[in-house]
């Protein structure tokens, strides 16, 4: 864990990551690297291991073999301080997973107060600013159950940002949303990317991936079939599997 890391090195470095659930191998040797400030999109058919990969990056699931380094910290190290890792890595889920018994503002404030031990007044000011940033000013005292899916998802993004992570992981964050609310969430993510946040997105929104991503990875059945800048991957895919997938979704 003592490996010194400098910002010119990849902030996320996966080398030959393998992950099995019992006899089923979900990730069959994934290697990728993300530089600070980069936006990475992982696309591919359902069940190709996209979600599993980003859950492994956050140490929500242990990997079977290989190496994942976040800012030089080895995620598969058994002595890993998971809580310290997760302070660097924010995650937003498909189902928002807000805490239903807390208001939007409280949802955003909880972790900085209880986990980082920061002062309530300071956290509250920051939380209000974050909610305003995701265009939810005025919804501070609303409970998640009274918010639309898109609004809940934006609260979830603000909640993650309140921890001031270096990297944000988005796990199919628009998949459960109504089509009309997808856009408001994507706008929020794009602004985040423009601010220089390192983002790793698993997404089915191909147009969005094409617009915001610096690099797109196409995965199928646990391997990265092809990757490259969006212009080349979306227009001139080399692999036949990528071409077939893209012709189905575009």
């Amino acid at each position: 864990m003592a490996t010194s890391w400098t910002p010119d090195q990849p902030i996320v470095q996966c080398v030959d990551v393998r992950k099995s659930f019992g006899a089923l191998e979900v990730l069959k040797g994934i290697s990728l690297s993300v530089r600070k400030g980069e936006v990475i999109c992982i696309i591919g058919p359902s069940g190709s291991g996209k979600s599993t990969l980003i859950r492994c990056i956050n140490a929500l699931q242990p990997i079977t073999s290989g190496s994942i380094q976040i800012e030089g910290i080895e995620v598969s190290d058994p002595r890993l301080d998971k809580l310290a890792l997760r302070r660097k890595v924010g995650m937003v889920f498909q189902q928002y997973n807000l805490f239903p018994h807390k208001t939007a503002l409280q949802n955003v404030m909880m972790a900085p107060i209880h986990v980082l031990g920061q002062k309530r007044a300071e956290v509250e000011a920051r939380a209000r600013a974050l909610l305003a940033k995701v265009r939810l000013a005025g919804k501070e005292d609303t409970y998640p159950g009274e918010l639309s899916g898109g609004q809940q998802q934006r609260v979830a993004i603000a909640r993650s940002l309140a921890m001031r992570p270096d990297i944000m992981l988005f796990d199919e964050v628009t998949a459960a949303l109504d089509p009309e609310t997808v856009k408001e969430v994507l706008v929020t993510i794009r602004e985040l990317a423009e601010d220089g946040m390192t983002c790793i997105l698993v997404t089915h929104e191909m147009n969005f991936a094409r617009e915001v991503a610096d690099h797109v990875y196409f995965t199928d059945r646990g391997v990265i079939v092809e990757h490259g800048p969006p212009e080349t991957l979306f227009t001139a895919a080399k692999d036949e599997r990528t071409q077939r997938f893209l012709s189905q979704v575009l």
């Binding site: 956050n58 809580l83 889920f93």
Partner: peptide
Amino acid sequence: TQWEAAESLSFTRRQTMWL
């Protein structure tokens, strides 16, 4: 998923339980 959300926000198990 509530556990996962709490975990990803670095809450300890005890904090997750009580909060």
